[in-house]
Design a protein around this nucleic acid. Sequence first.
DNA 1: GTGGTCTAGACCACT
DNA 2: GTGGTCTAGACCACA
Lengths: 120, 120, 120, 120
Amino acid sequence: MWFTIDFHSHVPVYEQIKNKIKEKIVKKEVNENEFIPSIRTLAKEIGVNLNTVARSYRELEQEGIIQSVRGSGYIVIGIDKDKIFDEKIEEFRKIVISAKNLKIEKRDLLKVIDEIYGGE
Amino acid sequence: MWFTIDFHSHVPVYEQIKNKIKEKIVKKEVNENEFIPSIRTLAKEIGVNLNTVARSYRELEQEGIIQSVRGSGYIVIGIDKDKIFDEKIEEFRKIVISAKNLKIEKRDLLKVIDEIYGGE
Amino acid sequence: MWFTIDFHSHVPVYEQIKNKIKEKIVKKEVNENEFIPSIRTLAKEIGVNLNTVARSYRELEQEGIIQSVRGSGYIVIGIDKDKIFDEKIEEFRKIVISAKNLKIEKRDLLKVIDEIYGGE
Amino acid sequence: MWFTIDFHSHVPVYEQIKNKIKEKIVKKEVNENEFIPSIRTLAKEIGVNLNTVARSYRELEQEGIIQSVRGSGYIVIGIDKDKIFDEKIEEFRKIVISAKNLKIEKRDLLKVIDEIYGGE
DNA sequence: GTGGTCTAGACCACT
DNA sequence: GTGGTCTAGACCACA
């Protein structure tokens, strides 16, 4: 299974798909000039409609990250890592602010980070 | 202005309102037994429809956080800080995982936390 | 009727809709800050599915030409006339080249232009 | 290379091939009773599938423009120039109307024509 | 009523 | 088999 979708999230499914694929590319689980799963394959795998995946792919193509090859599928072009980085950091900043507002202490956040990145 | 709404977020407006009010309560900007703004007032202030604010208040009441006082408005009952804490930590954990997936380094996250919480 | 669609064209319906709306804006048949017809209204009027119009509007929004207003509709932001101009001139250039290749004479093209723009 | 194909055009590849061949015939780059490239050759040259070229040739044959010669290939029969002319002029007319709608001035179109046909 | 998303299913162009 | 487009119809969030 390539990845899973949270159907109860407020984030639309097509956005989740876009994000997951961007992650895969950054993590080099798919490399440039490689094909990603076909629209139909991925749709079946994650249990969504073909059109939903198609929309994700179409938007990723508009962002210049993948490109359709007629009759063959979608191929990875490349990704602007700085942009992805900045977007995620901004998202991260918002939730840290929100956590601070909720009087969550710094050490509680650090604990989570250590858990995930490994202590040290 | 009490707070602002991101109308182009994927998070529904009524959810944003609920979250902001919870933050206010935890931060003690509104205390127990105090009134929060009337539906009408808040709706006008943040530029949304009455029904939207009404829905937020209704759900907050169902969660036992506020209570309607006939003819007067809504009064703060109290809040289960542990639950709020856990929810936010969980949200935080997800984005940290996502950041790690994107090969964002630990120190980049720590930098953001220091910025917001104050270094050290 | 706002406009009509050529269902036998190779140009996809959603593209035709986008082009027609761009024309309307340039021609000032709809002005900035005015609403264009709702997705459902336009879909019914030109006899296409709601999703098709929705896609057109979504892409026009991505291009910064219109913007969605929650619960109200889509409002015109503005349009980069130079870009539209350049695109159309480029399209025009291609067909002129093609006409020349087909040994169509210059005066035959000029005749068409005079017909449409008014002679002289 | 005989000609090139725009794979991201909305015009189907088999239509593009047909049009290019018609142009070649009108321009007398291939004359009557001469062979055009074999399906296999042309397919390889422009990088499309055999079936696609085959479809183009089949339709050109139906239009009486070329004819298959068993074991040899396809030979040019002739072309109804008036029909080609009318089709192209009609296509031209549409874009001129569209240009006028976009408030493009007559002189801008004339400039393009002069560029391509040579001034005067 | 408005936009936003999604499903199910279809046909076309192309390899 | 692949992508590209479209229809019909549904549910949600919002004014």
